[in-house]
Amino acid sequence: MSFREKSAWVTLTTILLVSGFYFTHVPRPFDPNPGEWSLFVIGVAIAAFVVIEVVAHVVLYLRYPKDARTRKDERERLIDLRATRLAAYVYVAGTFLAILTPHHGASGFAVGVFVLISFMIAEIVNYAARIIYYRRG
């Protein structure tokens, strides 16, 4: 398994963990009074994501220093581009759907939550696609 594939697994796992934490603690999107708790949860989720990513990648770097220092080659750059393009489609579709929710009574907070959901799903698609492309050769 290449270093970049290991890194993709780490990031995918981190996104799933942080998303799971966020969606089990955030107020429901249609809650009329989300309060400051939702901001706190977002802050904790972002901080947790950064810390886990940094620590995990430092461990990867120390474990595989030679692979970590190798620059991305053409195939890895192509995989990144294809996965990012897929993620962009998901994010744009999700955002457009989120914009429609006020027509069904959603508040500004709800729109923000739905945009965040589409972003998280897009990133999951991004890193899952990278892993699939790496596995397929």
Binding site: T70, D73, E74, R75, E76, G137
Partner: peptide
């Protein structure tokens, strides 16, 4: 100048 995985692919 590529990875071993790329050579394999």
């Amino acid at each position: 100048g590529v990875t071993r995985q790329t050579v394999n692919a």
